[in-house]
Amino acid sequence: MKLEREYILKELSRIFNEKFEIKNPGVDDDLREEYEFDSIDAIELLVEIEKILGFPLSQEQKKMAMEVRTIEQICDYIQRMEYVGV
């Protein structure tokens, strides 16, 4: 089942709020610049993304996420991984 973008955004909002204490980040905000979201946080976020996707990501797929900077880009990444996973 294809993940709706609206659902992904809602889940990301929840994760950023609960896990990273970042409330309602703008979809185009640079997470590193605005919220000190660093590579350690990105690794933590990948665990949450795997839960959204419902399957584990490979090391190569995870490395592709390291350049992602905004919520918009995270949504794109999740949808791309969902497509690959399927």
Partner: peptide, 12 residues
């Protein structure tokens, strides 16, 4: 569980 529960920061 297929998702790791070892955190990226556990070593730190």
């Amino acid at each position: 569980d297929q998702f790791s529960t070892v955190s990226a920061v556990d070593y730190l």
